[in-house]
Amino acid sequence: MTSDGRTPERASLGTWPTPLEPAPRLARALGLGPDDLWIKRDDLTGLGGGGNKIRKLEWLCGAALADGATTLVTTGAPQSNHARLTAAAAARLSLRAVLVLAGTPGSSASSAPGNLALDGLFGARVVWAGSAGGDALVATAAQEAERLRGQGEVPALIPFGGSSVTGARGYAECGRELLTQAPDLTTVVVALGSGGTMAGLVGALGAGRVLGVHCGAVSDPAGSVSKLVSGLSDAHQAAPEALRLRLDQVGDGYGALTEPVMSALTLTARTEGIVLDPVYTGRAMAGLAAAAEDGDIRPGQRTVFLHTGGLPGLFGHQATLTRAQAALTWED
């Protein structure tokens, strides 16, 4: 919503509809039928290297423009896909971008390439917030917005992960788009980060057809999604206990590589030539594999895996790069 409560017009940032592609070799490897598994390619949304945040940012940036914003301010981890795409959206819309990121200059996370290199390429300014996380990170962003306001700028605070009721509209639209591409779909599997992507899909498809795989980005994934769903005026209502969630793929925490995730990355790459990232889509695919194994996803049903992007983040994740390089074979 805009600051005065109006529904904003969308900013034009992405390329729609994104493709829906069959994944028969991966399906067979997971014990499904060759026509059972399809991949919704929201990694191919166009702007800034692609990814799911573009659908959210179309609505969020539309609201910011309607309010006369000159600068977008958002938060995230050092390798945040959302921060990278906010910077790209700002460049497209002739706005400035300030990214308030957890960490300090020179730390292993803040000196890795990946998304951070693209943040610089898009012209964003980074404010390092130290070890602050959660509410403290949001408070630092609010302070930065006040500082900008004092300099005559009009800052727009873009929420963590783009996840607000306004941002979730983008994925309610995606759910409707999916219904035109695969009207017989039974389950959409999606990474659950800040919650807005899953919430929008639930708003369009209902809780029973959306399986969210928790990635460890928020402390209360069910509550976060349920709150956003309830704010979508055209949404199905979804109490936290009604949501389909897998909480078994977090491992040692957000950002930590697990064996199921590495297996999912490798299997997807070697069967379909598609690259996932180790934090979000890798966990979502590991959750899909676990759901196929325990019977929550079954042969004969149309399952869609939502590829939310995140490729640049892989190049900022040293553990994954080390494992991938170790798998190389060569001859003298």
Rank of each mutant, 00 (worst) to 15 (best):
T166E: 13
T166W: 09
T166C: 14
R169A: 04
G170R: 01
Y171L: 04
A172P: 00
A172Y: 07
E173W: 04
C174A: 15
E177M: 09
L178F: 12
L178D: 12
L179N: 06
L179K: 08
L179D: 06
L179V: 11
P183S: 14
L185N: 02
T186R: 13
L192A: 06
G193E: 08
S194D: 09
S194W: 15
S194A: 15
G196L: 11
L201I: 05
G203V: 02
A204K: 10
A204Q: 13
A207Y: 09
V210W: 12
L211M: 12
G212V: 07
V213M: 03
A217I: 02
A217H: 04
S219W: 07
D220I: 14
G223L: 11
V225T: 11
S226C: 10
K227L: 13
S230M: 08
G231A: 11
L232I: 06
S233C: 13
A235Q: 07
A235I: 09
H236A: 12
A238G: 09
A239V: 11
P240N: 07
P240S: 05
E241S: 15
E241T: 14
E241G: 08
L243Y: 08
R244P: 13
R244Y: 15
R246V: 00
D248V: 02
V250Q: 02
G251P: 05
G255I: 12
L257C: 01
T258A: 09
E259R: 06
P260G: 02
V261N: 01
V261S: 00
V261L: 02
M262C: 07
L265F: 10
L265Q: 04
L267S: 10
L267I: 10
D277C: 03
D277T: 04
P278K: 01
P278F: 05
T281K: 10
R283S: 01
A284G: 03
A286D: 01
G287F: 00
G287L: 00
A289R: 05
A290L: 13
A292H: 06
E293F: 11
E293D: 15
E293G: 09
D294C: 10
I297W: 11
R298A: 03
G300E: 02
R302H: 13
T303M: 05
T303S: 08
V304L: 03
